[in-house]
Structures are given as structure tokens and as C-alpha cells.
Design a protein around this nucleic acid. Structure first.
Lengths: 207, 207
DNA sequence: GATCAAGGATACCCTCCGGTATGTAACGTG
DNA sequence: CACGTTACATACCGGAGGGTATCCTTGATC
């Protein structure tokens, strides 16, 4: 082994995420990423075979971070409606507060149009998120918080709305305001839950 | 004047849109665009000062095309609910059927993160679309097709959902199926109109 | 029909950047 | 303590592509 080993690949992937989120895939050179970790390009290429491989690693890093965060947020909660609301809140907050995530995902979308591996990676991630949401909604349904006819379709529409709001936030930063955030969460939840009552909030639950 | 003049700038902008939509801003060289019109780079630079200027022109081209199409679609309609539905249908169809538009807007989103002019251009376009929708919804409301409390908020959420579905279509092409399209239109309209009845379709109107 | 402006072509430059070739210092292993 | 392996550095290559310099062509105008 050479001087320092540590987990360079992971560090490089994380630095890549940081820089990609800041400037986009195209405007970040391998030299930049390597320098960001305190290493040179030659060394970089002993960990990754190509820039493309690094991009995939950066994507994985993002996916893992998101899922880990969601998991941490709902771990202590047991009430289905609470869990659902918390996940939506976390998703909204992550997208709005963390500008980097917004920018990174926008880059993914653009790249995925031309890159099958990136596209497949995102599709897989998206599917797992969808399944999580479907599970949450169906739990909420079983507990009487909603009687939505088509949970899967509603979740799809809500996820689409999240993506749309994410994009909009890039153009209208005022969405980052606290009160706006709450309105968005309510709007999103209303797609998935009953409209007639504010049954989302657990203390107002009807069952 | 030289051999052929015509409206080269417009042709270049349109070709730029075509190629950008196909390969993305970064992967299209000026040479490609010039060649696509049957011209060389030197000539290109007598019409545009930079690639950036061309990108802005391609954006304008897209915005104008969209607005023109919407206008043509609703021109013959007078019933407010019909007009609203037609616009949503047109938006959905354009996004789903025309892959190029999807790809082009994805590129815009990615670029706008780093380019203020592109961002402002989109913001302006988006605002005009929003105002159009708000007008349509309020007309529908005045005619009794909906009693939605906050038309502006509902329109925002619906536009967000459109953007989200647009993105999703990049990963799940089956959305392009005819029946799926109708479901999406209904889903979107339900955000803006009353849920209890299918009052969207004019022949079922309650007033 | 001489002049001139503008569209167009050709050729070139220069920079950036992904990737490679090569060297070297540390570590594990026998 | 040789020896291979691995993480790292240095230096370089080569292609791509944005932009420019320069010349040519054409048509309008007087």
C-alpha cells in the first residue's frame, strides 16, 4: 500500500457529487475532483476507469444518501399518517433547502436522456421510492386515514408533482420559505389523502 | 447581398433546437448546426455572436412554438371547461408525444441552473403559461365548473405535476400510450377542478 | 459598371480536458 | 530483504470544438 489509503473511492464520489451539483457534469474536470480530495488525476484513474464510472458512483452516492435520510426520519415514528407526512416533509425539505440536490438531479435528468446506465440507475431509485410511498399510503389507508381508490396512481401523480416543484424551486427561490413549504406539503398530501378533512395530521385523525 | 439570404437566423435557431433536443447543448457543435442548414461556421458567426446567443434563440423558438400551438388549439373553442381541458390535453400530448420537447426542456433546466439569461427566459415563459392557466381556471370557475378555493395555488401544483410527468415520461415511455394520456389529463384536471363529479367534460357540466 | 456592404467559405488558432505512459514511494508477503 | 502490488505524482498526447482572420461572392445603389 502507498502513503495514505483510506476510502478514496468514496471520497472521490462524494467530491464528485459536490462539484457536479455545483457546476454540472460537463463543467467539472477530473483534475478538479482529484484536487478537491487532494490528489492528482493519475491517482484518480487508479480508482475509476473513466469519468462515466465516476458519474455513476456520484449518482449512487446521492441515492444512498437520500434513502438513508428518509429511513432515519421515519424510524422513530409508528403512526402511518405521521410517517407519510414526515416522508413528504423530508422530501420537500431536501429538495428545497438543499440546492445541490436540486441541481444534481437536474443534471441527472439531462444526462439520462442520452445515457442508458444513468437512466436505469435513476429508474431503479425512483421505483424504490415509489414502492416506499405506496406502502406508506396503503398503511395510511388501512388505518383509515384515506380511502383513495387508486393508491399507486395517486402516488405517481404526487411524485410527479414533487419533481415539478423541485424544478420550479430553481426558478422561484421563495418556495424555500417556511410557510410555503408547509403549503406544498399539504398540497402534495392532498393528492394522496382525503380532501374533505385535514385528516393528514395525526391528532386530527378520524380513526 | 450574397447568394441566398432568406431568414437564416430563424433557420439556424430551428436547426439548433432540433439538434439540441437530440443531443443536448454540450454535444452539438456549431459546425453541426451550420451544416444542418447547409452553411459553414464562418457564416454562422455573421448571424450569431456566440453559441450562447444561439441557445437563447433556440429557447425563444421553443417558447413561441408552444404558445402558438396552444393558441391555435383553443381559438375555435368557447366553452371554458372545454378550453381548459383542451389546453391540458395539448400540453400533455406535446410533452409526451414529442420527445424532442421533453429533451429540450430538460436541457434548459440543467443549463438554467448556471445561466441567468436562460433562467430568466424560462421564468418569463413559465409565468405567461401560468397566467393563461389561471385565466382559464377562473373562467371555468365563473361558469360553475369548479369552486376551487385557491385557483393560483392549484394551477401551480398542476403545472408542477405536468413538469413531473414530463420527466417521468423520459424513464417510462409507456406513458405515451393513448389511454395513459387520458388518465394523466384527468389526474391533472382533478387538481384544478372539483373532485366529486366529472364536471370537466362540458356535456356533464352542472351549470 | 465601379463601389460597397453583407453573407458566405476556408483555414487556422488556442484552449480545455479525458485519457495514458511512465516513474516512484510505501506497504504486505514470502 | 527482495518482490510484487497499489496509491500516488508528473508529464504528455490528441481530439474536439469555440471563436477568429481572411478572402470570396453577390446583389443593391449610384
Amino acid at each position: 500500500m502507498p502513503r495514505t489509503a483510506a476510502n478514496r473511492p468514496a471520497m472521490l464520489a462524494q467530491s464528485a457529487f459536490d462539484l457536479f451539483a455545483e457546476r454540472g457534469f460537463g463543467k467539472v474536470a477530473i483534475d478538479d475532483i482529484a484536487a478537491h480530495v487532494g490528489v492528482t488525476k493519475g491517482s484518480f484513474y487508479s480508482h475509476f476507469r473513466s469519468k462515466h464510472e465516476l458519474i455513476l458512483a456520484a449518482c449512487s452516492y446521492y441515492y444512498r444518501s437520500y434513502q438513508q435520510r428518509i429511513h432515519e426520519e421515519i424510524a422513530p415514528l409508528t403512526n402511518p399518517a405521521e410517517r407519510l407526512r414526515r416522508v413528504v416533509e423530508t422530501s420537500v425539505r431536501t429538495c428545497i433547502v438543499d440546492k445541490r440536490n436540486r441541481m444534481f438531479t437536474a443534471e441527472i435528468f439531462a444526462l439520462s436522456l442520452k445515457d442508458e446506465q444513468v437512466r436505469n440507475g435513476w429508474a431503479q431509485f425512483y421505483d424504490s421510492v415509489r414502492e416506499m410511498y405506496v406502502g406508506l399510503v396503503m398503511s395510511a389507508q388501512a388505518a383509515g386515514y384515506t380511502d383513495i381508490a387508486n393508491p399507486r396512481g395517486a402516488v405517481d401523480m404526487m411524485l410527479a408533482a414533487i419533481e415539478g416543484v423541485k424544478l420550479r424551486a430553481g426558478f422561484e427561490p421563495h418556495i424555500a420559505d417556511e410557510d410555503e413549504q408547509q403549503a406544498i406539503v399539504d398540497g402534495l398530501l392532498s393528492i394522496v389523502l382525503l380532501k374533505s378533512s385535514n385528516s393528514t395530521r395525526p391528532e386530527k385523525a378520524t380513526s
